[in-house]
Design a protein around this nucleic acid. Sequence first.
DNA 1: AAACCGTTTTTGTCATACCAAAACTGAAGG
DNA 2: CCTTCAGTTTTGGTATGACAAAAACGGTTT
Lengths: 239, 239
Amino acid sequence: MNEQSTQLRFRAADTLVSAIEERIRNGDLRAGDPLPPEREIVRDHGVSRTVVREALRILASKALITARPGFRPVVARLGYDAALDAVGSVAAQLLEQPDGVRNLFDMRVRIEASLARDAAKSATSEQIEEMEAALEANRAAIPDTKLFYETDVAFHSVLHTVPGNPMLPALHRAFTAWLAPNWIKMPRLPKRNEINYEAHKAIFDAILRRDPDKAETALRDHLDFAWNQVSDIIEGARH
Amino acid sequence: MNEQSTQLRFRAADTLVSAIEERIRNGDLRAGDPLPPEREIVRDHGVSRTVVREALRILASKALITARPGFRPVVARLGYDAALDAVGSVAAQLLEQPDGVRNLFDMRVRIEASLARDAAKSATSEQIEEMEAALEANRAAIPDTKLFYETDVAFHSVLHTVPGNPMLPALHRAFTAWLAPNWIKMPRLPKRNEINYEAHKAIFDAILRRDPDKAETALRDHLDFAWNQVSDIIEGARH
DNA sequence: AAACCGTTTTTGTCATACCAAAACTGAAGG
DNA sequence: CCTTCAGTTTTGGTATGACAAAAACGGTTT
């Protein structure tokens, strides 16, 4: 029984990972199912529990399973949100690099500028109505700083639904989460909210007028304004 | 010595991860340095080797260390490339989802369209010269299909250097790597190369003429053409 | 059907042991 | 003085066995 034939050039855990990965992929283990107990995997695959635990850790880091301490790991419903969650810790490293926040924000601006153009060119009337509703909610929330932030995010999030690419909303949520720690430090006053609402309105109006150039510049102005507000804070926070 | 005070609500490995993360962040362990041997970490932190190994695995999945089987783990030089490498396995999952490749490709098109606009608006003369050189190399490689692919990638890669955001080249490399498995199946003939070269030239000319709209549409046409070539293949390959 | 309680699993962790490959050491040779 | 190579020590990869605490299970009572 003792198969201590150690140290080829692969880790036993890696081959176990592939085996379980396969069972997930071919439907033997379905999303939401709990994985077999560690000892059962030990028996079935003839490896030690050490190896099994390592394999489970790797699967978790690949977002194939979710493993809360103390509970049975369950097969994750792999989607864009879960995937971006899984890379969150890596993204956090990036944000600590010189200009990390700036560079990531630049990526966001690029994506969203593209979305503004798209919306101006091809948003359906339903989508425009959705945007209008979000804009109105945003206006109503001007006095309530906390609510304003939420409706602000919601307005931008509508833009991300226009092209029908499910990666976009997921990416927006990820960007929002990653950048939030810097954003919440930004002083939020009703006066500022007013300015931001007007910016949202300008973007919406350009989309309504089907003017892609105007929509893009309005959006860029809006985000540049927000950037200027936080960039000072980030400078100061640099350790 | 036996501190078998198990099972709070967090794992011992996670706190160990934080401890080592801290030592990396504050410069105690610098990029390229090997980590202390597992047994030394065991002594210093009063945990078992099981926990140490789990922690190392987690650090590796966070791209903070690189751990080849059989060798001492070394502190990774954290950069955008390493980070995107680390998320590669997650990205692979995404590509297997329905329309995964299409959606990822759409993201790429958005980014690159934005780059074409940027280049038309604000590329320096040095950058334009670089693009011209890349274009010429691309033209010269038309008869050599393999070389053409390389110069094709190189031409696009120049676009990614224009805004000076180091995330962009890294992302381009990542996209190229992730999409490569589908791309290499595309039939590559000198005739096709000719068409693609002309498309590159059209993009470059638009940039030269400082016409952002034209640059964007030229680039979109180019990528749409490429997409049409591979989309059939992907349909067939769907398991 | 819901709440309670005792029993059985199961996870998280520790300790120890062994093999084979890597890292280190020092002598021999250029 | 540097290189080469064999011998020794260290270290990573894995297996086994053990145990506490929490979770899952099952049956009983309300």
